[in-house]
Design a protein around this nucleic acid. Structure first.
Lengths: 124, 124
DNA sequence: TCCATTACTTACATAAAGGTAAGTAAGAGA
DNA sequence: TCTCTTACTTACCTTTATGTAAGTAATGGA
């Protein structure tokens, strides 16, 4: 049995699913795997997300120790987000998602330009 | 660039995320990795899901060619769900989720009985 | 003095996801 | 005839997620 704070899980897969059960958190991780990023950079990377939601998701990821928030005492403000060691360990998961996605599209869709996103930048 | 029906994606990760962006679909896959299952078995496995939602999720997975629905002409009805080949290929992804979950709990939670779920049955 | 900048916060509103409870079909067995 | 069974469907409702648009703080530069 697994416990996180007061929550109980009988399987570690449900721990992971419980954290990443929204549209955005894994997208944030994906972009932070490229580089540490400022708020605005993430906002551009994931351009469909609203400021408000990005703020919420970053806060949730920070609370869960998956990312780090570093504030610089500058004006205008500068805040840099980066992955913690456990955050970094999500890389193989993202890689599986990347690879399964390609397999899936091969069978159920079309690929016009395989290198639109090598594995470095992109998201929809 | 990737296309599925009319939808456009610049990255295959977003294809995968777009399919599994809810609380339940990956749970269904997980249990179908064990065995082919009848509706009621899945309903017991994922006991927190409502019948209605399970019905919807199974329909969505079938439409996306990730699972197969086999109807037996019996009374009471018998319907068996199973993974398609592309559905089977989700196994490494689930395995990564399983393993990352353990790592995460080691750092941020407690494990009382590591074998509550070996890797065969369970979900929360 | 005024505007631009960044990283937010707040109030308000909508959409999506999910739940509950009841109903249905069609035979088998008591 | 009545009840049980499975795999749903339907109507209605609640919760959660997300969006929009405006506002804020603090400073530098025109």
């Amino acid at each position: 049995m697994y416990y996180i704070n007061d929550k109980q899980y009988t399987c570690s897969v449900s721990v992971t699913m419980d954290i990443f059960n929204d549209r955005w958190k894994l997208a944030v991780i994906w972009y932070l795997l490229e580089n540490d990023k400022r708020f605005k950079e993430l906002s551009k990377d994931i351009h469909e997300i609203s400021q408000k939601t990005l703020t919420i998701k970053l806060k949730e990821l920070e609370e869960k120790n998956i990312i780090t928030r570093e504030v610089f005492a500058e004006v205008p403000p500068k805040v840099v987000y980066s992955l913690t060691p456990i955050g970094m360990k999500l890389k193989p998961l993202l890689k599986e998602m990347f690879e399964w996605g390609i397999e899936y599209v091969k069978e159920n869709g079309k690929i016009t330009d395989e290198n639109a996103c090598s594995s470095s930048i992109c998201w929809d």
